[in-house]
């Protein structure tokens, strides 16, 4: 069924590439094409090549000083005990050994993974559902704009608003709870804070990933769906055999994007502590909060630079492995259309 539909649409349309739509993949794949480029030796190329280093130098210098250097330094610091002021004291793998016995780190790591997997899966499922509904709905541009909006609001603000909804007893959620059941609702922020955070992160991210997936699904030629209608395919078959395979590449990229950005989540969780100096309760920390909490954060900062660096290295390593696995797992033969 899929094969037939795809064959029918093959070569049907060549998408015009506008100046406005950059091709990130193309930028990275360029070296492979270099040899094939017919103009490789023309004067324009030669001149450009002379400008390569002068043009690249400022950005590259900043990148080396503020990314490459610090990343390597983090690894180096993680093998030491250091408070940032005195001498660094080498301690080999000791930091790492302690880390794996530290229940607060393991909890933060588990929370990071829960956010990555649970929030990720829910967000993607919801985004696909929304995309399917929005596909042929009136006012889709408006809906997309409204759903996307949280993505450009400061996470601190979203956190304050989200927290206000779940306050007891006066928050919206418990007001509704009382109206329906007559009894007082649970103390969300006290007893179920992590669940509230997970739910909030789904809310914040669904709009963005819906937009990404929608953009992928929109590239599918409509005649494939017409073929489906002629063949009498059900909605599920249409999704399973046309929409999903043809938007797979976009979904795979979005999944990597989510993995990376889930690791960066900090403010949305942090603001539930309520102030500039107070950390939220330990059981909702993720690894970003763990780094902050063991160094600069809290009322009496710990300044355990070595230990915090080790935790950052472990988390980054784990997620790098996950990204590689994810790419392996999601690799499919690209469907041409």
């Amino acid at each position: 069924m899929a094969g037939k539909a795809v064959a029918a649409g093959t070569g049907a349309r060549q998408r015009p590439s506008s100046v406005d739509s950059p091709r990130w993949g193309a930028a990275l794949r360029r070296p492979g094409r270099a040899a094939l480029s017919p103009g490789a030796r023309n004067p324009l190329d030669r001149r450009r090549r002379r400008l390569f280093w002068p043009f690249l130098a400022p950005a590259l210098a900043l990148y080396v000083v503020f990314f490459v250097g610090p990343a390597l330094a983090s690894l180096w610091i993680s093998f030491h005990r250091w408070d940032g002021v005195g001498e660094m004291e080498p301690r080999g793998l000791e930091n790492y050994r302690i880390l794996f016995d530290d229940s607060s780190f393991l909890g933060a790591f588990a929370n990071t993974m829960t956010i990555l997997v649970l929030v990720g899966a829910t967000t993607f499922a919801l985004s696909f559902a929304l995309t399917m509904v929005l596909r042929d709905m009136r006012g889709r541009r408006f809906v997309r704009a409204v759903l996307f909006f949280p993505h450009i609001v400061a996470p601190v603000v979203l956190s304050v608003l989200w927290g206000f909804l779940f306050r007891s007893p006066e928050g919206l959620v418990n007001s509704a709870w009382r109206a329906v059941s007559g009894a007082d609702g649970p103390n969300w922020l006290g007893d179920h804070l992590f669940a509230v955070i997970v739910l909030g992160l789904v809310w914040v991210n669904t709009g963005f990933y819906t937009t990404v997936i929608m953009a992928g699904v929109d590239r599918i030629p409509p005649d494939l769906y017409e073929d489906c209608a002629l063949a009498g395919a059900t909605g599920w078959q249409r999704f399973r055999h046309v929409t999903l395979p043809l938007s797979w590449e976009v979904v795979a990229t979005a999944a990597v994007l989510w993995t990376i950005s889930s690791l960066k989540i900090f403010e949305f969780v942090y603001a539930f502590g309520g102030t500039t100096n107070d950390m939220p309760p330990l059981d909702v920390w993720n690894s970003a909060l763990f780094v902050y909490g063991t160094t600069f954060g809290g009322r009496s900062p710990q300044y355990q630079y070595g230990y915090a660096s080790a935790s950052a290295v472990v988390t980054l390593a784990a997620v790098t492995v996950l990204v590689v696995l994810l790419r392996r797992l999601m690799r499919r033969e690209t469907v041409q259309f």
Binding site: Y63, G69, P70, I260, K264, A288, A312, L316, V323
Partner: peptide, 16 residues
């Protein structure tokens, strides 16, 4: 660099 979260490099950055 896009994949490196700030909290991973924040300690050396602070020292710097």
């Amino acid at each position: 660099g896009i994949g490196i979260p700030t909290q991973v490099i924040v300690i050396p950055l602070f020292a710097l």
